[in-house]
Amino acid sequence: MTVPTGGAAQAAPPTISVEGLSHSFTDPQTRKTVHALDDVNLEILPGDFVTVVGPSGCGKTTLLNILAGFIRPSAGKAFVNGRAIERPGADRGVVFQELAILPWRTVYRNIAHGLEIQGVAKPEIDERVNRMTSLVGLEGFEGHYPHQLSGGMRQRVAVARTWVSDPEIILMDEPFAAVDAMTRLTLQEELNDLTVRTGKTVFFITHSVEEAVFLGDRVMALSARPGRIKEEVHVPVPRAERSWERMSHDEALQDTVEHVLSLVRGEAVEPTGQDG
């Protein structure tokens, strides 16, 4: 995993590719058909950090669920390394919107869980988990149970648990939506640092334009339902050089935020948003 960040990997085959993806389902409450996604095309190259931003209910999460393998699309295809996605797999780690770390496992055992499942030998688990806990600043909390931690700490556990298994791609579904604003800024910088250092391929969903621009190499602006990619925006500053400090000064970044905002703003017509 030493692929350089940024768009320099033109020659490498896409890690994820999505072709003509559409999805509709029947809402269990209203019994109405919902068109969640419409003709989405997308390529994610190794080492890419792609963020998807769009209004509430635009099908962002549906898209992630398809990539994760939880949902089969109604039409079109999604591939990982050229193979059609059919079910969840350890090659695609997911960090969930709601916390999905297990309350009955300690921090250590939560992070080690994926490795245990994959049958990694005990000494190696020890070593990798220890490296991970220090990487995300969880040293000293290994024996704690999730409910004893703050929201931010729990989110670090969720990230660490996914990272430690070293999946090729990490899918993140608004992972910082539930933490307070100050903690969120810290977590975002930490995540940026972590991805730059590990060179991970990340697919990140958010409804915050600033977050999308701050974290991504490319930002996909999605339209309201049915979700369609309106525009793909390249973020001008390399990820390694980003910080919230710089975000507030850099005009190029500010302009990008403005531009994405203008793309998304016109779409927020539905009053039935479910997330803030």
Binding site: A100, I101, W104, H113
Partner: peptide, 28 residues
């Protein structure tokens, strides 16, 4: 929460594993 199950599936867990690691302790 269904997410616990989903999370384990993304880590490569099979049904038996999920029963052991999620449903058994979770329902305790």
């Amino acid at each position: 929460p269904k997410r616990y199950r989903d999370a384990c599936r993304t880590m490569g867990a099979g049904t038996l594993r999920i029963i052991r690691d999620v449903y058994m302790p979770g329902s305790f």
